[in-house]
């Protein structure tokens, strides 16, 4: 059962309904900037989180692509979503490498010729073969390409210095992903495993939020509480769709099973999170 929580309305004016208009026309309030040294710890912790997830991504991708190479459709289908989760969690960093992001995670809509486009590769190309064609025929080269790209990503990230504004901004970026493509169910249109990705994005955003929470709380305790509640709300709704309540690895029901009412119920807190987290950088005085 859901508890009643305030996950609402954090827009610039929304907290001031019916306030006299003149009250809104205020000079910009200078934000007490967080000392740059304070960010070092959380950023370093985040890098560890990303590297952990990359390690998982590499090993899961190895199993997944091996199944494709072996022509084991059923196994490859089963491994598709659990492998992607690790990518979805670290998207803000993965996206820094636009070439790899395109070859690993682009969707057919990104190409003029759609599925037939020779540049269409990666997870979603394999998804199409596995879930639309029910086949691995001709997929060997795409499987190999995906493995190579993931390895490449891993080595590039090892040597990367994480810019704090990218890390902090990543929380909002992940929620924008959710708002734009997950709620609508566009991401995994053949496998219908959107909820896995959804959870991956939320996990990634929440990790960033948790790491910077103590700093954010110094600036605005109410903000932290609200964001926390909204994350809880989203996760509670997602939990309703878990196949097994106590075993996260069992995953989620097909996105086809998500009712319109629940899509709307998810849209609410997701939008508030996107709106709230869009202010996290500013709150921490980051450019």
């Amino acid at each position: 059962m859901k508890t009643t929580r305030q996950w609402i309305a954090t827009g610039a004016f929304a907290l001031l309904p019916l306030a006299p208009l003149t009250a809104l026309i205020t000079a910009p309030a200078a934000q007490a900037a967080v000392a740059p040294e304070a960010l070092v710890g959380p950023v370093a912790d985040y890098k560890l989180y990303v590297l952990d997830n990359l390690e998982q991504l590499v090993s899961h991708t190895r199993d997944f692509t091996a199944a494709v190479q072996a022509g084991d459709v059923e196994k490859a289908q089963a491994l598709y979503a659990p492998t992607r989760v690790y990518y979805e969690r670290i998207e803000p960093i993965a996206e820094l490498f636009a070439d790899l992001d395109a070859s690993i995670d682009a969707r057919e809509d990104d190409y003029e010729k759609g599925v037939e486009d020779p540049d269409f590769t990666g997870f979603h190309r394999l998804e199409y073969a596995l879930f639309h064609d029910d086949s691995t025929e001709g997929m060997e080269k795409y499987a190999q390409g995906l493995m190579d790209d993931v390895n490449d990503l891993d080595s590039r990230v090892q040597g990367l210095t994480f810019p704090p504004e990218t890390v902090v901004g990543g929380a909002a970026a992940l929620m924008e992903e959710v708002a734009a493509t997950k709620v609508s169910g566009e991401e995994d249109r053949y496998s219908r495993t959107d909820l896995w990705d959804f959870q991956g994005n939320v996990d990634g955003a929440r990790e960033i939020f948790e790491l910077f929470k103590p700093l954010a709380a110094q600036e605005d305790a109410g903000f932290v509480e609200r964001v926390q509640d909204n994350f809880d709300d989203v996760e509670e709704t997602l939990a309703d769709y878990r196949l097994e309540a106590d075993d996260p690895s069992a995953g989620f029901e097909s996105y086809d099973r998500v009712s319109d009412a629940d899509r709307r119920a998810l849209t609410g807190p997701v939008t508030v999170l996107a709106e709230d987290l869009s202010t996290l950088r500013g709150l921490l005085g980051l450019n």
Partner: peptide, 15 residues
């Protein structure tokens, strides 16, 4: 109508 509020540029603008 009227003037839109300003905000610290580190934040998304309110308008």
């Amino acid at each position: 109508g009227g003037r839109i509020p300003e905000r610290d540029p580190l934040f998304p603008p309110p308008d």
